[in-house]
């Protein structure tokens, strides 16, 4: 049995974590290395590092920061943000990323997923999708939600799976930041077409939200950002809750 994963997400701008990671005992709260080390110690099963400026500026993620964070971690690291080419995927892996998340570039050219899977294995190619609710489903949003494509999220996910994506990171941009719970209908619809691990993102407000998401088998992992960063919840408290509800999580005491 593979454990359900809790994955903190560090959003980077100018090499700093934005949305403010507030750890009282850290001198420099926006330092991605300090935040990553802290989350690993608290039981994070993986980390995601998203360079949110990279796409806008037409470049890939900041390789120096990737190297610093990857070098400080001994749990897996997924890196994303503006990744457009197999060369950039290779550069990120060379700087310590274990997996690479692709979003806009993969949507425009699904062959990027195929090339990544062929060279580095399908487990390396993470397809990130931002889902925006429509009258009868969800459409793919690009550039942080500023561009709507009219393409069905479920259809694109199925096509991405065929192209070579080995894992899906799907954010509900309607639920994101609302603390109103996960868009479980979205993940249920995706489960209907995907045979790949699915990471849910957006909407966490209370333990019960995650309990329902996992209890109904709708995701394999949950990505958390602001609610963790602002100290509203902690990884140990989430894992205690899940364990108490007989949902499998990694037990740190075995380390």
């Amino acid at each position: 049995m593979v454990a359900l994963r809790i994955i903190p997400c560090l959003d980077l701008r100018d090499g700093r974590v934005v949305k403010g990671v507030r750890f009282e005992d850290l001198r420099d709260a926006g330092d991605p290395v300090a935040a990553a080390v802290r989350y690993e110690a608290e039981g994070a099963d993986e980390l995601v590092l998203l360079d949110i400026e990279a796409s806008v500026r037409g470049r890939g993620p900041d390789l120096g920061v990737v190297r610093d964070v990857a070098g400080a971690l001994s749990v897996p690291l997924t890196v994303g943000g503006g990744v457009r080419s197999l060369q950039e995927v290779g550069d990120l892996l060379g700087h310590g990323a274990d997996k690479v998340a692709m979003n806009t570039a993969a949507f425009r050219r699904p062959g990027l997923l195929t090339e990544t899977a062929a060279q580095y294995g399908t487990q390396c190619a993470v397809l990130a999708i931002d889902a925006a609710r429509t009258a009868d489903g969800w459409e793919v949003a690009l550039r942080g939600g500023r561009e709507r494509t009219g393409t069905s999220v479920v259809a694109w996910a199925a096509a991405g799976q065929t192209a070579g994506a080995g894992e899906f990171l799907v954010t509900s941009i309607d639920a994101d930041g609302t603390q109103a719970g996960y868009d479980r209908a979205l993940y249920r619809a995706l489960r209907g077409v995907l045979e790949r691990p699915l990471i849910a993102s957006g909407g966490f407000g209370a333990f019960e939200d995650m309990g329902r998401l996992f209890g109904e088998g709708l995701a394999d992992a949950a990505l958390l950002a602001s609610r963790l960063h602002d100290g509203a919840v902690s990884i140990p408290s989430i894992k205690s809750y899940l364990r108490a509800h007989r949902l499998p999580v990694r037990s740190e005491e075995a380390g």
Binding site: V2, R5, G121, G166, P197, D220
Partner: peptide, 10 residues
């Protein structure tokens, strides 16, 4: 049922 096998297993 899901591939890849991704994550922590005993």
């Amino acid at each position: 049922p899901l591939l890849p096998h991704m994550g922590w297993s005993p």
